[in-house]
Write a protein that binds this DNA or RNA. Sequence first.
DNA 1: AACATTATTGGCAGTAGCTGCCAATAAAAC
DNA 2: GTTTTATTGGCAGCTACTGCCAATAATGTT
Lengths: 190, 190
Amino acid sequence: MSDEQRQRQRLEISRHAVRLFADQGVSATSGEQIARAAGVSERTLWRHFATKESCVEPLLAKMVDAFQAVLRAWPAELDLAEHLRAAYTPLLDSSSGAELKALLAVVRMTHDEQALRAAYLMLQERSELTFAEVLAERTSLPADSFELRVRAAAINAALKVATDHLVHADTADASVEHRNLVADAISLVT
Amino acid sequence: MSDEQRQRQRLEISRHAVRLFADQGVSATSGEQIARAAGVSERTLWRHFATKESCVEPLLAKMVDAFQAVLRAWPAELDLAEHLRAAYTPLLDSSSGAELKALLAVVRMTHDEQALRAAYLMLQERSELTFAEVLAERTSLPADSFELRVRAAAINAALKVATDHLVHADTADASVEHRNLVADAISLVT
DNA sequence: AACATTATTGGCAGTAGCTGCCAATAAAAC
DNA sequence: GTTTTATTGGCAGCTACTGCCAATAATGTT
């Protein structure tokens, strides 16, 4: 229960941080500002996040979770790309349109602010690990095998490129576009 | 010419930084120490590197360069994995055994020190871009195409996983082992 | 309901990574 | 040999972050 509270608070802080980052830029936003906006002392802010850039993590993690859920629903006998095209509508489902816009805004910001990009890549690598776990359940591969890790990394990389690509030319319906890009990318590496 | 001098100095600083990092750990090493060890003022250190972690970049870039050279030598009609198995001995050629050990030590350190891992991932992403350029020359794919970027990302991810895997169980002849791991990994995603 | 215990928070002081600014020195151009 | 230009160093300063202790809130016990 206590842990759940903590996650909620982290997400709350994350929202404020992302809004400030989007409004003023990352480097122009101080930890003090984030703390004040979130109604918390600076000291506890740093207890929740190691760096100010990592404040975006809880929000981004929602995207990762959504994708992970799709992976979990993947029947082992089907082609992954096809499954994605059929079942991948998680962002529209699990979050409001505003939230999706915020997510894309963060990813877009990572292209200008180096430190934020680094935080983004760190999160991606964590997601790679969870993808590997899911893959281990859905396939016959051993959980700690080299092949599994490579495949998880490839899927992760495909997801990253697709997301970056979408962010640069964002269309009317980003969610549908993202689904297709991800499916295309993954069909190339599997 | 001036730029070449600059690169040399960066590499020189990088060596000292890596040695200090390996000896005392990253967080226990201060920018002042790095500067003093490299015989340069702290101010100019920060002119050369944006963060102390990024001091490892010039050294790591040598590994990337080596791999890139192998990619460049890839005949378009051959299977990439086979080509790698035949032609991939760059680390032994281009650098001394001590330098290879230093490289692996850095990669190993990235697993304990978060900030260093972030710097490592940033470098990897830069290498992804250069891989894409080389691929554009060696294949018939358009230089800025989505498919090309996905393939470059997959190769990059495979290289990363293979390197990480090697670092955890380093054998007597790391170079040969690395060649095989990279070739295996890439054959899975191409 | 009152009290003891434990976890979470805040304030304060301090360290260190980094930046801007100007003077000093070195390199290059002429 | 002098003017110009690029590189370096020193200093001051900001802020991201940490350790430490007190305060408050949450939780459990009787």
